[in-house]
């Protein structure tokens, strides 16, 4: 039982936290702009490397420079929208051009990171940590406590922002019904840029957490894209908190299928990647609204 918690469940939750921070951005951008943002993974990569540059420049631990990295990546997200997606928005409701453009943006972001930082993998801090014991039963790495704690704090803060602040409410209104929100006098551009900024900031946090947990590589974000989309669909498209919960489910499911439930692992770990595929397909077939009964587009 303890083995189950320490070796499988905790890892699944940590993985879910990283997925969550990306999935929230994907679901918000889909909700407000109606397109799947395939460059989101590479925006996480960019955020992680921005934090690396700040660590090099300041010499401070990475968690200290995290707020600055989040701000810069928020600006990057808004900048991407302004430079690439806005000019391509025809206003006709067809977004396929923008979806394809986001693939191009993904390649550009990755290449830019490779240009500035090289293609070798690197880390924020060398060496490795040893786990600590909590109440003599739970064995967990200190950095995992940070990742889980900060992710919870960020998701709660986002929830409060969306439910309490004017801008947050405007974003939800826009996500629910774009035309109605516009007639009610909600400034479209402001809301859209806010969505990109929030999405970018959370993507940076996710990228940094993944970098802290493993290492930085220029493909780190791209590799997360599929589980993050699965999480966004699972949570009900357009529902940020749902996406966070969906991410948790995907992350935990990926780890738990390899647990030796009946003496042998349920699934060879080599097939872990297939789990998010399976969840995605099953949902689209049987429950396209997601777990939280979101909308279908």
């Amino acid at each position: 039982m303890l083995e189950f918690v320490n070796l499988y469940l905790v890892n699944g939750i940590v993985l879910g936290c990283v997925y969550a921070l990306g999935a929230i951005g994907i679901t918000m951008i889909f909700g407000i702009l109606r397109f799947g943002h395939f460059a989101h993974g590479d925006m996480m990569t960019a955020g992680a490397y921005i934090a690396l540059a700040l660590v090099w420049a300041s010499g401070m631990p990475v968690l200290w420079v995290l707020p600055a990295a989040m701000l810069l990546t928020a600006a990057l997200g808004a900048g991407l929208h302004w430079a690439f997606y806005r000019p391509l928005d025809t206003g006709t409701g067809s977004t396929i051009v923008i979806v394809i453009a986001s693939f191009g943006v993904a390649l550009m972001l990755r290449s830019a990171v490779q240009l500035f930082f090289g293609v070798d993998i690197t880390t924020y801090q060398r060496g490795f940590q040893t786990p600590i014991w909590i109440a003599d039963t739970i064995r967990i790495l200190p950095r995992h406590l940070w990742i889980i704690g900060l992710t919870i704090a960020l998701v709660v803060a986002l929830h409060l922002f969306l439910t309490r602040s004017r801008l947050g409410k405007a974003m939800r209104a826009m996500s629910d019904n774009r035309a109605l929100a516009r007639i009610s006098g909600i400034g479209t551009m402001r809301v859209v840029l806010a969505a990109w900024a929030v999405g970018g900031a959370l993507a940076a946090a996710g990228g940094v957490f993944l970098g802290i947990d493993t290492q930085l590589s220029t493909q780190m974000g791209w590799n997360l894209l599929l589980p993050m989309f699965a999480a966004a669909v699972l949570g009900g498209i357009g529902n940020p908190v749902g996406a966070a919960l969906g991410a948790l489910v995907v992350g935990v499911a990926e780890e738990l299928v390899t647990f030796p439930w009946f003496g042998e692992p349920l699934l060879s770990p080599a097939y872990k990647s297939a789990v998010s595929f399976a969840i995605l397909v099953a949902l689209l077939v049987w429950r396209p609204t997601g777990l939280t009964r979101g909308r279908v587009f």
Binding site: Y8, M220, N223, P260, S268, P269, A270, K272
Partner: peptide
């Protein structure tokens, strides 16, 4: 004897299985 996928964030569950 276990294969693993390249470029994943975590191999801890694989390792837990391998360590048996």
């Amino acid at each position: 004897f276990a294969p693993h996928e390249d470029q994943r964030a975590s191999y801890r569950t694989e390792l837990a299985t391998l360590a048996r």
